[in-house]
């Protein structure tokens, strides 16, 4: 018996959906045997407001599982998410936007409303006001899905690893618990590590890392130990394809934390900055530390910088 599934996307880029497609040939048996997808805007034509556009409230079909990608940034996202929760027995948050806000939650650093105003006030744009006819109103900030509804399963990643998506979908279809990684990117990273003590400052990634592409990555010194900001230690594992190092490290590029924090309630900025400071690395050498929350700015972690009068320091 195939399980009924619905897919929705909220404040997202469709990378998660492409990741589903990137399951590749294994996708065919999955969608033809295990899953009975009854609603998925990117792939099929079921409409939320009725096939003839006559509905007034969002309709999502009843389903065993719901997969939602993207965070929640406007009233429409929220309505869709609430409808999903109502109709789905098991609700899966797919991708880091859904689990932690993702890149769009960077907007929380300046305030969603302020940011949107700014978008329509760029110098190249003809004078206008913020559109408000027939388009949904923005919320106060970008939320992760679990801030708004209960989420049963979290499958982060930007994009999520197709193999993990397949594992989760197969497991759910088979009625078992999926196997998901629980450690940090470093767990799958085979680079040479000798201690961080020699690094005193973090370098910007303006030159390539020191490594020989002809050699296996095991011969490359840990990028953090080369002085680059690599967020592997504070980022959930999962990006690595089977038997391979993490996807960025593999091409000599430091991790930027796209799977979100190792523990779901972790704080990548705090954990990373702390690890640096503890190792005697000048935390001020990090040019833009708030960027460390670039994938996990929801849950109130990334906030608008307040401007307040300077207090007398005693």
């Amino acid at each position: 018996m195939a399980v009924r599934a619905v897919l929705e996307w909220l404040n997202s880029c469709s990378g998660c959906e492409i990741a589903i497609l990137n399951i590749g040939e294994a996708l065919i048996p999955l969608v033809s045997e295990h899953l009975d997808i009854v609603h998925a805007p990117i792939l099929m034509d079921h409409k939320c407001l009725g096939q003839c556009g006559e509905g007034s409230e969002i309709e999502i079909p009843e389903a065993d599982i719901g997969i939602v990608s993207g965070g929640v940034a406007n009233t429409e996202h929220l309505e869709v998410l609430l409808a999903m929760r109502e109709k789905c027995r098991l609700l899966i948050a797919l991708g880091t936007c859904a689990t932690h806000g993702g890149i769009p939650a960077l907007m929380n650093g300046q305030g969603l409303g302020e940011g949107i105003k700014g978008v329509f006030a760029t110098s190249g744009t003809d004078p206008c006001s913020v559109p408000d006819v027939g388009v949904p109103a923005a919320l106060d900030r970008v939320y992760a899905c679990d801030e708004k509804v209960r989420i049963d399963l979290f499958l982060p990643g930007c994009p999520p690893n197709p193999a993990l998506i397949a594992e989760v979908l197969t497991a759910v279809a088979q009625g078992r618990d999926p196997v998901q990684p629980g450690k940090s990117v470093c767990d799958t990273c085979q680079v040479l590590r000798e201690g961080k003590g020699a690094v005193s400052k973090v370098r910007r990634f303006l030159v390539n890392a020191d490594y020989n592409a002809e050699e296996p990555v095991q011969r490359m010194r840990c990028l953090l130990e080369q002085g680059f900001m690599c967020m592997g230690p504070v980022t959930a594992a999962g990006c690595a394809a089977a038997g391979l190092p993490p996807s960025c490290i593999r091409v000599g590029v430091p991790c930027r934390g796209c799977f979100g924090p190792v523990r779901r309630d972790g704080n990548q900025m705090l954990d990373m900055m702390n690890a640096l400071a503890s190792n005697g690395i000048d935390f001020k050498s990090v040019v833009d530390r708030r960027s460390l929350l670039r994938f996990s700015g929801a849950h109130g972690l990334l906030r608008q910088i307040r401007t307040r009068p300077v207090r007398e320091r005693g």
């Binding site: 404040n11 406007n74 429409e76 960077l106 907007m107 949107i116 700014g118 960027s291």
Partner: peptide, 14 residues
């Protein structure tokens, strides 16, 4: 219906 505001939130980043 979707707007994420990349033009704004890339400001200040390296």
């Amino acid at each position: 219906t979707s707007l994420r505001g990349f033009e704004k939130f890339v400001e200040g980043r390296p």
